[in-house]
């Protein structure tokens, strides 16, 4: 099964199995990771599942849609070029091995 590594703000790494079709956000909340809040439940409405994708893996991720791009302007931690909302990162085979860093705060 594909895997994603989540790096907390203070550097702790957790690697999780993420089934195809499951979002990087869903896998994190199902596992109980603290760094992802996902207040809206994955509707791209709240910008509290913000992650920084390892730069050289950005191309592996699905293209960003307009709604996500817009909501990223409202994140609590600074938006960077590698910012994504993890609810929109739905697992496909190419994303296996993805490393995402969680920001200092989501709210």
């Amino acid at each position: 099964m594909p895997q994603v590594t989540y790096v907390s703000h203070d550097g702790e790494r957790t690697t999780l199995d993420v089934p195809l079709g499951t979002s990087v956000m869903q896998a994190a909340t199902l596992h109980g990771l603290d760094g992802i809040v996902a207040e809206c439940g994955g509707s791209c409405m709240c910008a509290t599942c913000h992650v920084y994708v390892q730069e050289d893996q950005l191309a592996k991720c699905p293209e960003m849609e307009l709604g996500e791009d817009a909501m990223l302007d409202g994140t609590a931690s600074p938006r960077r070029p590698n910012s994504r909302l993890s609810c929109q990162l739905v697992m496909v085979p190419e994303m296996d091995g993805l490393v995402v860093t969680m920001p200092e705060t989501q709210t």
């Binding site: 791209c44 910008a47 307009l66 709604g67 791009d69 817009a70 909501m71 990223l72 302007d73 409202g74």
Partner: peptide
């Protein structure tokens, strides 16, 4: 259908 406005509105 205007999420960018909403993000700015919140700020």
């Amino acid at each position: 259908n205007k999420p960018a406005d909403h993000a700015f509105a919140r700020r």
